[in-house]
């Protein structure tokens, strides 16, 4: 329960205009810092929802797949350059960001992850690795400015951010391929 409280505090801090402005002033911190923190806030708050809507989660998200699909859709949506632009210009989209990332991505992620088989877990990481590599490639080599609010240099920076995150996920996949956790744990 305490965790949920911390999650709520984190979300409220992220909502503060100076914090939001600072993080949104740089493209890469907008996408690779603000958005993941919002997901983490939801992840922490998930405990509250799980306890209060036990039935709902047990029924709707029995094997974890529906939850993770919702998570994936939301994350993929927010990886598009268009949506980031709109979040900066349209208040409604900005509001949707602060609702969707914690509650429609963070909460289902927490609920689904332990329910998923290792096949789905690895499939998800592989999917995001490929997505991030593709996005990195898109942001780095795109000849045009994809966002009205950010310069091309910021776009290239974000591209490298995607590539380095994808690299980290590859490291993890290799690590988990060679390591048999059941032996150590």
């Amino acid at each position: 329960m305490k965790q949920s409280g911390y999650g709520l505090i984190l979300l409220l801090v992220m909502l503060l205009p100076p914090v939001a402005n600072l993080l949104e002033s740089i493209m890469i911190t907008h996408m690779h810092m603000q958005m993941p923190i919002l997901v983490i806030a939801g992840f922490l708050m998930a405990k509250f929802f799980q306890q209060h809507y036990l039935q709902f989660f047990a029924k709707w998200n029995e094997n974890g797949v529906p939850g993770i699909l919702l998570f994936t859709i939301i994350m993929a949506y927010w990886s598009l350059p268009r949506t980031m632009d709109e979040a900066l210009t349209l208040t409604s989209v900005e509001a949707f960001k602060f609702v969707s990332l914690p509650f429609l991505a963070g909460v289902p992620l927490r609920d689904s992850w332990p329910k998923l088989s290792s096949f789905w877990k690895h499939a998800l990481i592989i999917f995001f690795t490929i997505l991030f590599l593709a996005l990195g490639w898109l942001y780095m080599w795109s000849p045009v400015q994809l966002c009205n609010n950010y310069l091309v240099i910021e776009q290239i920076t974000l591209g490298w951010g995607f590539i380095s995150t994808a690299f980290a996920m590859v490291v993890y996949l290799v690590y988990s391929y060679f390591m048999d956790f059941s032996k150590y744990e």
Partner: peptide, 15 residues
């Protein structure tokens, strides 16, 4: 932990 470290290093140094 190493993956977390790489992600954090990426956040800090890529820009």
């Amino acid at each position: 932990w190493i993956v977390c470290m790489i992600v954090l290093v990426g956040m800090a140094y890529v820009i």
